[in-house]
Design a protein around this nucleic acid. Sequence first.
DNA 1: TCTGGGGTCCTAGGACCC
DNA 2: TCTGGGGTCCTAGGACCC
Length: 429
Amino acid sequence: MLLKKCKPVFALADGNNFYVSCERVFDPSLEGKPVVVLSNNDGIIIARSQEAKDLGIAMGTPAFRIKDWIESGKVTAFSSNYALYGDMSNRMMRIFADFTPAVEVYSIDEAFLDFRGMEVRDWKGLGKTIRQRVRRYIGIPVGIGFGPTKTLAKIANRIAKKLMREVGVAVVDTPGKIRRALELTPVEDVWGIGRRYARLLENQGVRTAADFVRLPDGWIRRHMTVQGLRIKRELQGEPVIALEEVVPPRKAIRTARTFVEDTADLDFIDEAIAHFTVRASQKLRAQGSFARYITVFLKTNRFRSSQPYRSLHYTVRLPYATDSAIVLVHYARLALRRIYDPAYAYKKAGILLSDLQDRSVRQLNLFEPPEDDRHRRLMETVDRLNRRYGADTLRLGVQGQSRAWQLKQMHRSPRYTTRWDEIPVIYAR
DNA sequence: TCTGGGGTCCTAGGACCC
DNA sequence: TCTGGGGTCCTAGGACCC
């Protein structure tokens, strides 16, 4: 096995059971007890405390399957409260940034820290210090893994949480420790290898990351594309995945929701689509982009056997790239009418804005109508007022009043750290 | 009764052009 | 029966991530 230099330079730090830990900060009596956080509409379990995991509650379990436990108080359940989690995340990231200027916020609950060029004699001690500081100031327990590549830092982090729970820090910094870490890691737990590849690899007799690294490059390239090859290099200690400190602008923006009940009501779906489009256009303007395409999609309930599953979508190439909610809603509604079939009841609907381009580099096409300056000013005003007086103070008429398609949230905790209308911006991919 | 949401990258294959 | 070669662009689909 080829192992190059293995001085750790990357750390992966993440909050343990992040959403659950956020809830516990505001109700410490939940420490040591089974706690879960539910998805939108209180549908499935998306976060579990260790005690909930120990009860055998799997990720993605439908909430109704543990309804008895929730009602009897054996398990405490929270509806997801992203305003709270986003705010706690920002605070945690700021602490990480005290230790190195090079931080990549990778998701709401984890960040890569780059210590290249810094003199660190005691990696484990550094990890412990970071951990203590986050615990003291934010109240969230974190796990930290150090390694010479991002993929190995991920593996070290997993070991810190699974096998060294008390310490919460693991350092992979010698060829021997890398080898041992790879042997301890099931191949499906390697960053970039999902269920499908894991099954394929299983058929080759590959069970651990150590087995994977022994596969010939040609086989990996053929079956797992260049991505697979990159994973192998990273596992061997050769950094090929760079730290991304600057969050690149999104290439697509999607807004979609599952309805509480299946519905064939076009007016209702129309309202929902208009609302999703307005939301997506806000995100679009927030990142300073224009969209060239809008896709509308409808899905029937795939768990219902009384009707066949249908997934419909229609994409409109807009006459010109725009960020105007008015223009986007207009085309979204046209697209909806192209796919809507009253013979079916729909469980989910959404829109996708794609082929996004930066506002400043928007190409002026001679054949495109010039952008309507009145829209621009109107949108700026709407965004400003909604930021100031609360989301949806100003809405388009088609967004309607019923709001019946909004989320079911039976167990949401208060927005402890933010005003009701403040949605913190989460800097994450 | 009840099953989330929002992203990225890579490749193959078709359309089209010279 | 034979029916070029090479390039680019676009899209759909499949894999992955949290």
